[in-house]
Design a protein around this nucleic acid. Sequence first.
DNA 1: ATGTGC
Length: 476
Amino acid sequence: MDLARLQQASAVEWRIGPHGRMRVPAVIFADEDLVRQMDDKVYEQITHVAALPGIVQAAYAMPDAHWGYGFPIGGVAAFDADEGGVVSAGGVGFDISCGVRTLHTGLTVADIAPVKQKLADRLFASIPAGVGSSGKLRLNSVDMDAMLRGGACWAVERGYGSPADLERIEERGCVAGAAPEHVSEAAKRRQRDELGTLGSGNHYLELQEVTQIYDVPAADRFRLRVGELVVSIHCGSRGLGHQIGTEFLKAMVLAAPAHGIDLPDRELACAPIDSALGQSYLGAMRAATNCALANREVITHLVRQVFADVVPDSHLALVYDVSHNTCKQESYTVDGKAKRLYVHRKGATRAFGPGHPGLPPELRDIGQPVIVGGSMGTASYILVGTEASHQLAFSSACHGAGRAMSRHQASRTWHGRALVDELAAQGVLIRSPSSRGVAEEAPGAYKDVRAVVDAADRAGLARKVARLRPLVCIKG
DNA sequence: ATGTGC
């Protein structure tokens, strides 16, 4: 991106003043190197988002932002229903409520050294991964609707996961307002046997070692200690979310003229929050959110079974579960007025600061754990939400390293087999059903996650707490 | 991201 098109507000904040059809400014949080590397498409997309009806304050891009469908991935935008605000299927993304959860194990590197290979093989055998993979659960239509309404709470009621997990999940594991009646039969059919599966692309399950602590009090509260192991699970709502996204994108494009919306880009398909279509989408999107929460809960159960078998001394407890692709109603003060806004985060993590009522009581004084997943074979980070982020970017932070190269280009640049060998030599065991999938996810196809996290920290979006190094990676 | 797409 050409820096001349931006006004630099600080070392890590760049502004684009309203021009053309923009209703509000656009703001990019990143250091100079990251901004230079950013695709010009991010500029184009974030200014288009700033032109949507009812947008409040500004359109934001996080340090990991890159070209997405309509909205950039790493984009944040909030809309006011009272000002004709919209909800956008492209603003949430196809993989609705894709997210990451991290569990601490109470184990050290030494504890698992003798069984590392066995753990990798057993996790790979137990957690289905890859395109079209299916799990052991089969949901009939009654179960499907109950799951879509109940999320992780449904899973726990069925014996998957534990009640204590729910306190450590956004919205306590179950988003209100889910409307399974607005989820098509096609979407439900695709999901019938996909619960408890990882999926493909950048989804993964990793065994990670805590290698560095930056904030001791927060790390203590999150029970993260150097040399100890955690498990991180990154996945979403599989075929169901994708089907919902596809169907509503189409419907929103078709209905835009009737809603009086002149789309700056048809990929930004949206509908007024107060319209029937907007409400149907919100109901279906919330159902997909619950599907993703149930999925991560079922996978957690499968992971615990493997650990109970291979390392009986372990006790896997959830640190936190964050969603990356969502639209949520949250309270903010804008121009001195209290507002309930519809905050879209696409490839961005909610990052509530200390004192936020949406946090579980035991974490309320310290802030929300923010999990930033790195690319395959590279570090991940745990951060904590700040009070400043509330005003800076609707309590949002980055979600990962962010792609720097297309999948296609990556698959032509690297070979999966060679990458697996290379990473094994560095002590990272990769298990994946797809050699090409591994090539597409090559660490070199991503931005430097450390630079992304440092920029988020310097901008005040969230504060660094701990660094994690992968030991085992089950890749979709 | 995806019962993948050139």
